[in-house]
Design a binder for these strands. Structure first.
Lengths: 322, 322
DNA sequence: TTGTATGCGTTATCAG
DNA sequence: CTGATAACGCATACAA
């Protein structure tokens, strides 16, 4: 019982040629006699030979592996983003190493170190932690999703400010006066926080009071306890919006008559699972595609093609909650 | 401007020692003088040295990389499964290469080939294609999720038959007579298909007619058109259940008064986005954990620990749709 | 306690 | 058209 995996040399021996020749057949390089090529193919077949990419990577100094760092796949937005990133990279011959940072700085840092040790050709970073100096000093090609990382790192995001305007305007147009914004942990560095700024700007412009709740430090229940007469709620993502809806129904609010709710993201899964929710849809697929392109441009040194800030437009999806 | 990444030798030179010594420091092997160790650490720091795992893997003949093959991350069930697989592997020092087969046999085959070339230490296969011979002949450690692959490949699944019984019984207990099952493409090899069998068995036992729709060849609309008096619907997953609910509401059915609906999977995201849906919850986290353990056991040659069939129990989550 | 020499599986260079 | 050899960066056996 031979447990060792067959290597180039085994194929060469069986085919009666040199390793060089087998390598040439493998990579279609240089001229090779037809009968030789055939012999080599035969040998590879009978041995069930799989070229060792590790050895090849070592020599070539390129792994064709991309690191993906996100808080979690277990979220409709990231799940869809990761899906499309993987698909696009695969089409270009790249593989994808998945890292779930879980929102923890230490994990993200450890992952970054790991990815560098593994010689990845580039990184798409969608985890949003602060103060990770490696992004500043590394020369590794990086693309960031929805987050400023360092001066030289391109950012791909959707137009969060426009989305915030769109959402808030809709609630205003539908006659809401008492509108509350609710979001996750506030982080001023995040482009996504522009959603909040847009909300506050437009409320101010309309001479209305504004109020933003942060879901980490308060519960949705508090929001309703403290604002029983709220007429409109703009949630910074669809999960929060759904939880708001759930609580509102529990309290007997009629939606959209008594209360209007609008979410944010519009991921595929959310649209299937909550088709009635009005939301601002981000162009997730396009964002993924653009990220891949920007990363590949860096990897292949087409640095002239790279724009540092890339903001794609969002779209209002009207359901029955407004 | 030095673009080349620093290597062991650079560290050695800077620290005034040999490569061997640096390697020893790196791996904590053998005895090393404290001052030497300190010098080496200093050198690594100033050079921003990251050991090359590719080179190490080549020598060690182990990559610490696991391949994950699933249809898509863009699905609450798989997204959660992948999340926990990654988490568990990471805790054990393994990294994860993500492959979205998209349900296509050719892609799955290509991915398998790729994973072997990349020398992964093992594979968790959750993609469900038929006739992929590689699973039969490879000696690579593999764990399959919810799917029979080959005699020697351990399968992890939840108790699909019990789940089917649970779901159908609930509908019966609630007084439904006319109950329909609806699922995705039927594949008799899939353990998940036991859900259907359970449904049919119990309906037969109760002397009631049974009817299974396959969503790929019919639409949910057809189901209602052809069975206006349906009282209960057991969907083989929560996404289908949700689409059924959406259509039912559009047609004016009152749920659960006129029509009761139960889904399957009970993933975290589904429970947040559709808290009112009654469903059969699979122990996704436990399945992931067990899969990791079974794979590691194979990798570390603890073959005695391995049970080939592993069926975890499911749980009824009663919402307001029944 | 530290250094030298060799090999992991592949590809590129150069010679034939 | 094909083959011998060095090199990719690291870890081990063996020697010092």
């Amino acid at each position: 019982m031979e447990l060792r995996k067959p290597k180039l040399e085994d194929v060469a021996k069986l085919a009666g040629v040199s390793r060089t020749t087998v390598s040439r057949v493998l990579n279609n390089r240089g001229y090779i006699g037809d009968k030789t090529r055939e012999k080599v193919y035969q040998a590879m077949e009978t041995l069930d030979y799989h070229p060792n990419e590790i050895a090849r990577s070592l020599f070539i100094n390129k792994t064709n592996i991309i690191g993906l760092i996100f808080p979690t796949t277990n979220n409709p937005f990231y799940a869809q983003m990761i899906y499309h990133l993987e698909n696009n990279f695969e089409a270009l011959g790249y593989k994808v190493l998945l890292c779930n940072s879980g929102g923890r700085v230490d994990k993200e840092r450890a992952y970054l170190d790991m990815l560098q040790r593994h010689q990845v050709d580039g990184i798409v970073a969608g985890a949003h932690n602060r103060g990770i100096e490696i992004y500043e000093k590394t020369k590794l090609p990086i693309v960031s999703i929805d987050r400023y990382l360092a001066p030289h790192v391109p950012v791909v995001s959707s137009d969060n400010y426009a989305g915030g305007i769109l959402a808030t305007s809709l609630l205003l147009d539908k006659g809401c006066q008492h509108i509350i914004h609710i979001n996750g942990p506030i982080d001023l560095e995040t482009p996504a926080n522009l959603r909040r700024k847009a909300y506050e700007d437009i409320m101010k412009k309309n001479g209305l009071p504004y109020l933003t709740y942060e879901i980490s430090e308060t519960t949705i229940r508090d929001l309703f306890d403290q604002n029983p007469h709220v007429e409109g709620i703009f949630a910074s993502d669809d999960l929060i919006a759904t939880q708001v809806l759930t609580e509102a129904r529990k309290r007997g609010y009629r939606v959209p008559e008594d209360l209007k709710v609008i979410g944010y993201d519009g991921a595929d899964m959310t649209c299937i699972l909550r088709p009635e929710l009005t939301t601002i849809q981000q162009p997730i697929d396009a964002m993924a595609e653009l990220s891949v392109q920007l990363l590949i441009d860096q990897i292949e040194q087409r640095t002239d093609q790279i724009t540092l800030h890339n903001s794609l437009s969002v779209k209002l999806i009207e359901g029955q909650t407004t």
